[in-house]
């Protein structure tokens, strides 16, 4: 397998054999062979073989920004469903303001959506924090869900995709690594357009040169909008 070439592998399949390769994430070494243990795309970088999974539940990493739903309240924090195997925990101390322990529900109640950062991932659970910019309870806007494995494409290279969508729709967009996306614009039409654009990206996530495709898509949409406006005007 040559550098940067990707191939689809299934569990138990031998990706490469030979002593020069190192097994990375999603792979295992069995004798001379490097074997995939997950279904996804195999990739090689500097003799390190890894498998990028394209399906399955969200796996939290430290530092990820996620959007979750408050599942329950405890005496010292909130339990938050972030779509991973285990729920996240947000302690009172990780909220950057003073909170009376008896008033937890006033800050965030069951069913509220919250943007948080993954603070630590341990065997016993996931700890979340609000101590950073742009985090906190979601008060307005809309939230949509896509597969967490497609989030990298929605963000694009160095955020190129998401910043283009922001620019074209005049919306504020926060992409949670767990696949939930918060959209907030001034007008509901803008928010719906942004939603459409993101779903388009998620669906076409394996197309090459996606950023240009989305640009074209936006132009088409604006043309169509122009037509409808004209029609409306004639009436």
């Amino acid at each position: 397998m040559s550098e940067n070439q990707r191939k689809i592998v299934i569990p138990g399949e031998v990706i490469v054999s030979g002593e020069d390769y190192l097994p990375g994430e999603g792979t295992e070494k069995r004798g001379e062979n490097i074997v995939a243990i997950r279904y996804g795309l195999a990739e090689e970088q500097n003799k390190l073989i890894k498998v990028i999974p394209l399906s399955g539940v969200y796996e939290p990493r430290r530092g990820n920004v996620v959007i979750g739903r408050v599942e329950n309240l405890t005496f010292n924090g909130w339990i938050i469903d972030i779509g991973s195997a285990v729920n996240g925990f947000l302690p009172i101390l990780e909220v950057p303001k003073y909170i009376n322990k008896n008033d937890l529900a006033e800050i965030m109640d069951i069913g509220d959506m919250v943007i948080a950062k993954v603070w630590s991932v341990k065997r016993k659970g996931i700890d979340l924090s609000l101590k950073s910019r742009g985090l906190g309870k979601v008060e307005e806007g809309i939230i949509i869900k896509i597969n967490s494995k497609r989030v990298p494409r929605v963000i694009g290279k160095e955020g190129s995709m998401v910043s283009m969508i922001k620019e074209k729709t005049n919306c504020n967009i926060t992409v949670g690594q767990n696949g939930l996306i918060w959209i907030k614009g001034d007008r509901i039409e803008d928010e719906l357009l942004a939603k459409k654009a993101i779903l388009f990206v998620a669906e076409k996530s394996y197309v090459n040169g996606l950023t240009d495709k989305v640009k074209e898509w936006f132009e088409e949409i604006s043309l169509e909008d122009g037509k409808t406006v004209k029609k409306g005007g004639k009436k």
């Binding site: 299934i10 569990p11 138990g12 999603g26 295992e28 243990i37 997950r38 279904y39 996804g40 999974p53 394209l54 399906s55 399955g56 539940v57 494995k149």
Partner: peptide
Amino acid sequence: LAHAGVPMKDL
């Protein structure tokens, strides 16, 4: 199981 991204030794 493979499609769900569950780690597996083999099919």
